[in-house]
Amino acid sequence: MAKIIVTTRTGEISEVTGKPGYSVMEILRDNGFDEIAAICGGSCSCATCHVYVDRDQLDRLAAQSEDEYDLVSSTDHHKPESRLSCQIDFSEALDGLRVTIAPED
């Protein structure tokens, strides 16, 4: 089973099983990470699902869309490794993905 390693805003690290075919946002939300508000439910409209992906893993992800970049880059806590977790489709190939939940905007 493919795993995601999650670091919360308070620095707690845990490992969850990812459902292939679901977005990383859905997996985090369904595993009880309530720091992920995901108000727009994954339609790339709110940026409340902002995470940092480990830098050395960024190239494992499909490229960011222009919309995602435009939205996430306008948040206060944007970094080069910023992604909107609702825009990352999880798959077995992403086993071991490390994400850190970004501070609230």
Binding site: C44, S45, A47, D67, D70, L71, S73, S74, T75, D105
Partner: peptide
């Protein structure tokens, strides 16, 4: 409209 970088600011 398709202009996401304006929204949060």
């Amino acid at each position: 409209i398709n202009n996401l970088q304006d929204f949060l600011p």
